[in-house]
Structures are given as structure tokens and as C-alpha cells.
Nucleic acid binder design. Structure first.
Length: 466
RNA sequence: GGCGGCAUAGCCAAGUGGCAAGGCAGAGGACUGCAACUCCUUUAUCACCGGUUCGAAUCCGGUUGCCGCCUCCA
């Protein structure tokens, strides 16, 4: 069995074949760090983290690179507005990004390159493009000669002449052609800048990714990923730069995630209808946000609302309950042999069906439906009069493994310990024995007010927070 | 104007040629002292109109509606 990926470049699903056996070289376009990220920015972080986790689950080593754009127009603007230096702002929001995305279960990348730390490589890259005739300098700026790259438009599948009709020609244009894009921008007075053969300035937006992907992963990488809107022009330009420079294919598989909408409208900083991940993870269990995001195929749009988040939460509770049911039952189970084998086979069958769904272009929506199948199966087994410890353990492990692949943390506190709660439960049990149900209910209500939910099972009472 | 996507039950969402997954919400039942958890039962002429086919949500043509990219954007 093999993993299939929908490749934007070919507009079809293709079997994944790594350049190097057992390795995946993956570059994801990261945030421009001038503000907190909104939940739209959180989607690619979560989606591609899940892709990475799945590759790892399937035995690949993933060299995961996610860059930070720590100098550009928006950062300079923010610096002016806040009266701070660009690096201070960048540092602050890189930390915030890591914190927010970390709360959402996203693993740290293997490399987190920053533009400002790769300035030499960027300048060398641009210089080399000029030598090859793919770029030219005018009045301190350097532009890429777009029409010289024959395959321009192959990712977005736009005929080059149609692009021109839509492109904006700015006043005081220094470009040879409106399609040309900036590799290097001359610094205005007081702007943060670096020395270069073309005077002081800073890199254009696209060049950083070409340079850093090459530096950390090589001339050709396996997977390049990002939001749908980056397809054009960002990724198209990256291809042009990298392939002109390296004279080989840049990325083999291009993956793009769909948008998050608010009230069916695109969420964006410019429209002002965005929800900051920073705020959201404080209001809701970040696990639920992640579960919600993964409940839809990554290429499709998601509509976001508090109601939908609640609905996802109820769903995830079901899976978590099944896990707790199994864990709890394990305490009172014994070893049996009669139907053990078929249940063990059942757990393996369920694991395989999860793999099958994820193999199909990381279909997390279907993978989650397998999680629900597992929950049902586990609940049915757990309710039998006699249960086998190994089977229960197999279900628990299965749920831990597969929720882990999705970056979800199911492993709640194993042994809840609280003497005061235990004392109340004991008291309630006595009251129940005495058929003093008024007192028993009173005790249960008291606990509930403290955020502790009691559940009576055939194996005795248990409790959980929430 | 160019390129592309979407339309499936009250809501969310898979499925892309062979009897329409799953979840949430609702209804009924089992379990329970009552609950909770759980289990069982239950809800769809797949936007519309044509066509291809033994067979279409799925392929083709058209219509309508919504959305995105072409300009900073995940």
C-alpha cells in the first residue's frame, strides 16, 4: 500500500515516491510574523503537521522545514506604527506563533529558518540569477525576468498572456515587463536594510523560500505546501526562481489547503473578519479546534463558527469516552481465551482501515469516521460480561496511536487522585446502599458544581473533570 | 475578461459509474433508584434540465446559485 497525494501541479492524485528511500523532504510556507496568527493561518499548520505525523507513522523520516518571514513591508509598517524595531516585533510574534500552534498540537519543525538569518545565501542566489540572465538590476532594485522562464504559469495553469492583462502596472515602474517581480528592493530612508551588490535593501517576498528550501533540503524537494492562495503568485514565482537557478525540478508534489470561512466569506486580515488563534485557544479546548479542522478534507473550505466547534466537541467526547470506558473496564477484566482472537483481529482490521483512508490523500474526515467505528467497537466489547485484558489494551493502544497520528491527545490523566472527591464518592455509595437517594443526588450535585462528573458503571462509580 | 472550486438529510461531512459512510442535533426503546456514559431503532427522489450507460450523486452538455485566484494574504 502506498500514500497518494493530490498534486496541484498535475491536478490529480499521485502515488508518493520519495526522492530518497524512507525520507520526506518537506517545505511549508510559514507566517509573516507581524501579528498573532488567525485561525486561517492555523489550518495549514495543523493540516501539514498531520501530514508529517502520518508519514512518520508510516515509517518515514520527515525533514520538515517551516520558514518565518521576519522582514517585509508589513513588518516595516508594523514597526513604524508601534514605534519598535522590526527584529523585536518578529521575535515576539515568532514566540507567539510557536506557543499558539504548539497548543494546537503542532510539532516543532526540524528547521525554522528566518529570512534575516539567510541573507548571504539570498544575495548569492539573486546574484546567480542575474549572471544567468534571469534577473536584472535597475536603480537599486532587482527583478526576475518572468517571460524568460518558459514554464511560467505551470502551477497555476495560467496562460502567461492572460496574466499580463490582469497585472497592475504601478506608477514609476522600473520593470522591463509588468509580469516581472522583485527579488531585491532598495531601502527607503530609515528602513531596515542589508548591504548588497546593488546597494542597501532587503529581499523580495518569494526569493526567501527558494533560497531556504535549497539550503535546508536541496535543489529538488519532495513536498512543498502552503495555503491555496499561495499557488499564485508566490509558488509560481518560487518555481521560476528555483528552476531557473538550479536547472532541475523544484518540488515533486505541491499541496495546498483550502480556506477557513466566516459566514461563508474568506477570512483575512484585510477584511477584518478574522479570529485570532491566540484568543481561540484560550476560549476553547485546543484539541477540539484541531479535531474540528481535521473533520473536513484539507483541500475543501471550512466554515467556522462556535456552533460547529461545539458539535465537533460532542463528537470528540464520544471517542474520548470510549477510551475511558476501555481503560476503566481494564481494571476489572481477566484473561479469557474464547473469542479473544476475533476481537484482536477486529482491532487490526480497524487499524488497517484507518491507514487506507489516510493513504488516500490524507483523508482525515474518513479517518475520523474510522475513529468512530473504533469507539463503537470498543464500547461494545467493553460492555460484555467478561472481557480480556489484552483486547482492552489493544483498543486503548489503537485509540492512542491513531488519535496521536492526528495530533490529538486522548490520554487523559490515567489515575485521577483526589481524597476529598473519593470521600464524597464513598459517602454517596453508602447513601445509595441505604437507598437514601436524596442524599446521593445531593452529593453528586455538589461534585458537579466543582466540575466533577460522576458516572456509575457496573464496575463501580468513576469520575472525570469537565 | 482569464483560470479554478463548490452545491449530498435540520446542521456538519465522506463517497466521484453498481442498493447514499460517519458525526452533531431530534424522536422512540434498553440499561440506571434517577442521571451520565453506552447500546439498539429511526430520518435523503445527492441544486435544476438534458444526454451517455444494463446501471449516474459520480461521466458529458447546458442552466441557476455561491466562492476563490489573477493585487499583500494560509
Amino acid at each position: 500500500m502506498s500514500i497518494k497525494i493530490y498534486n496541484t501541479l498535475t491536478r490529480q492524485k499521485e502515488t508518493f515516491e520519495p526522492l530518497e528511500e524512507g525520507k520526506v523532504k518537506m517545505y511549508v510556507c510559514g507566517p509573516t510574523v507581524y501579528n498573532y496568527i488567525h485561525i486561517g493561518n492555523a489550518r495549514p499548520a495543523i493540516v501539514f503537521d498531520t501530514v508529517r505525523r502520518y508519514f512518520e507513522y508510516r515509517g518515514y523520516e520527515v525533514i520538515y522545514v517551516l520558514n518565518f518571514t521576519d522582514v517585509d513591508d508589513k513588518l516595516i509598517k508594523a514597526a513604524n506604527e508601534l514605534g519598535e524595531e522590526v527584529p523585536a516585533i518578529a521575535d515576539r510574534f515568532i514566540e507567539a506563533y510557536k506557543e499558539d500552534v504548539g497548543a494546537l498540537g503542532v510539532k516543532e519543525a526540524v528547521h525554522h529558518p528566518r529570512v534575516t538569518e539567510n541573507m548571504d545565501e539570498i544575495i548569492t542566489f539573486i546574484d546567480s540569477l542575474i549572471s544567468k540572465g534571469y534577473a536584472y538590476e535597475t536603480e537599486g532594485d532587482v527583478y526576475f525576468r518572468t517571460r524568460k522562464f518558459d514554464e511560467y504559469g505551470k502551477l497555476s495553469q495560467q496562460p502567461i498572456d492572460e496574466l499580463q492583462s490582469g497585472s497592475r502596472i504601478e506608477v514609476g515602474e522600473k520593470k522591463e515587463d509588468p509580469l516581472d517581480f522583485a527579488l531585491w528592493k532598495e531601502a527607503k530612508d530609515g528602513e531596515i536594510s542589508w548591504e548588497s551588490p546593488w546597494g542597501t535593501g532587503r529581499p523580495g517576498w518569494h526569493i526567501e523560500c527558494s533560497t531556504m528550501a535549497k539550503k535546508y533540503l536541496g535543489d529538488t524537494i519532495d513536498i512543498h505546501a502552503g495555503g491555496q492562495d499561495l499557488t499564485f503568485p508566490h509558488h509560481e514565482n518560487e518555481i521560476a526562481q528555483s528552476e531557473a537557478h538550479n536547472e532541475t525540478d523544484f518540488a515533486r508534489y505541491w499541496m495546498h489547503n483550502g480556506y477557513i470561512n466566516i459566514e461563508n466569506e474568506k477570512m483575512s486580515k484585510s477584511l477584518g473578519n478574522f479570529v485570532l488563534a491566540h484568543d481561540l485557544v484560550k476560549k476553547h479546548d485546543p484539541q477540539m479546534i484541531r479535531f474540528f479542522m481535521l473533520s473536513v478534507q484539507y483541500r475543501h473550505p471550512i466554515n467556522f463558527s462556535a456552533e460547529l466547534l461545539e458539535s465537533a466537541k460532542s463528537g470528540f467526547e464520544r471517542i474520548r469516552n470510549a477510551y475511558e470506558n476501555v481503560k476503566h473496564r481494564k481494571k476489572t477484566s481477566m484473561s479469557l481465551t474464547n473469542d479473544k482472537d476475533e476481537w484482536m483481529e477486529e482491532t487490526e482490521r480497524l487499524r488497517q482501515s484507518f491507514i487506507k483512508e489516510m493513504d488516500d490523500d490524507f483523508n482525515t474526515a474518513n479517518a475520523i469516521s474510522v475513529l468512530f467505528d473504533i469507539a463503537k467497537s470498543a464500547n461494545l466489547y467493553q460492555q460484555k460480561e467478561q472481557t480480556d485484558e489484552e483486547v482492552l489494551e489493544a483498543y486503548a493502544t489503537l485509540l492512542e496511536d491513531l488519535t496521536g497520528v492526528l495530533g490529538l491527545e486522548i490520554d487523559a490523566a490515567d489515575e485521577l487522585q483526589d481524597e476529598e472527591v473519593d470521600a464524597k464518592i464513598q459517602e454517596r455509595e453508602q447513601a445509595r446502599k441505604d437507598r437514601n437517594f436524596a442524599r446521593a443526588d445531593q452529593l453528586r450535585d455538589e461534585l458537579k458544581e466543582r466540575g466533577i462528573a460522576l458516572e456509575d458503571t457496573p464496575q463501580g462509580p468513576r469520575w472525570k473533570r469537565g
